[in-house]
């Protein structure tokens, strides 16, 4: 029954190939410009390594933050959407949470600056606690979390809506507490969505540029992530910029393929 659906009509082949070309051709164009012999040297420069290191750990930190805060948010949204009395509120909250998706990242960066900057909305409170965010790696993680959160919330909320509510209700009837249902039923059932959501959030964090540039600043080893380093190298050494772009693509492809192969095996279980 399902096999008839998974095989689309033949005519989709042409637009599908065009679609793939739109995404892949520019990448091929970039690869054709690479000076392959010089790549090892370009990639192992101190500034490149510092940027890669920062990008990787900051993206990982942002992904963890997205999971810790985004999953509860998705649970709340899905619950509200299932309740007819709160349906509208849920819709409004959802559109607000998804705002970073449509906001130009630079605007997001400015918004963060006006909130967490030294003259921002929370400057008094931050100063009181002696917390400094501007020009630190914390600002990088914050900018990444801001732009990546919607990806995780969407993945998880969509999956939550697809869960069998009767099954979960039956578990509650059998005496399981709500936390137990969440821990032993909902989260395991959600694991493919959690993985794909986390991967999307990580990939988006890795590519994050505008918000970081506008909010965090640019300092080697502290706030200059791989995309910022690429932007800077472009000024003087386009070859180095291309090599770094290749590195970014390789890391992203690696993470995405690893995660999807894992989530596929989860599906098959």
């Amino acid at each position: 029954m399902r096999s008839s659906w998974t095989r689309p009509p033949g005519w989709v082949l042409l637009p599908a190939l065009l679609g793939a070309a739109v995404v892949l051709l520019p990448v091929i164009g970039m690869l054709s410009r690479l000076d392959w012999a010089a790549i090892p040297e370009l990639l192992t420069s101190e500034s490149s390594l510092a940027a890669l290191r920062l990008s990787l750990w900051a993206s990982a930190a942002a992904t963890v933050l997205c999971l810790l805060l985004g999953v509860p948010l998705a649970l709340l949204l899905a619950a509200a959407a299932a309740n007819p009395n709160r349906f509208r509120a849920a819709g409004l909250l959802r559109s607000l949470v998804l705002l970073p998706l449509v906001l130009p990242p630079v605007v997001g960066g400015l918004a963060l600056l006006y909130t967490f900057g030294s003259q921002g909305l929370l400057s008094g409170a931050l100063e009181f606690f002696g917390i400094r965010i501007a020009y630190t790696s914390v600002a990088v993680v914050l900018a990444m979390t801001f732009v990546s959160m919607p990806f995780l919330v969407i993945s998880v909320e969509t999956a939550l809506r697809g869960l069998d509510r009767h099954l979960l209700e039956a578990a509650t009837v059998d005496g399981a507490s709500r936390t137990q249902v969440l821990r032993y039923m909902v989260l395991p059932l959600l694991s493919p969505a959690l993985i794909s959501g986390a991967v999307l959030a990580f990939a988006r964090s890795l590519g994050e540029f505008g918000a970081t540039l506008a909010f965090a600043g640019s300092m080697q080893g502290v706030t200059r992530t791989l995309p910022l380093e690429i932007y800077l190298q472009r000024e003087t050494d386009p070859d180095a910029a291309m090599a770094l772009s290749l590195l970014l693509i390789m890391v992203a492809v690696l993470v995405i393929s690893l995660a999807y192969s894992r989530s596929r095996s989860t599906w098959q279980q």
Binding site: L113, G117, S118, Q119, A134, Y135, L213, G217, S218, M219, Q220, T223, R224, L228, Y231, L232, E235
Partner: peptide
């Protein structure tokens, strides 16, 4: 001892202008 090294001079101006 800089806290940030910007790619464009207008970004430097922007950060001082916004008192950041």
């Amino acid at each position: 001892q800089a806290v940030s090294e910007e790619t464009s001079v207008t970004d430097v101006l922007g950060r001082v202008r916004s008192q950041e």
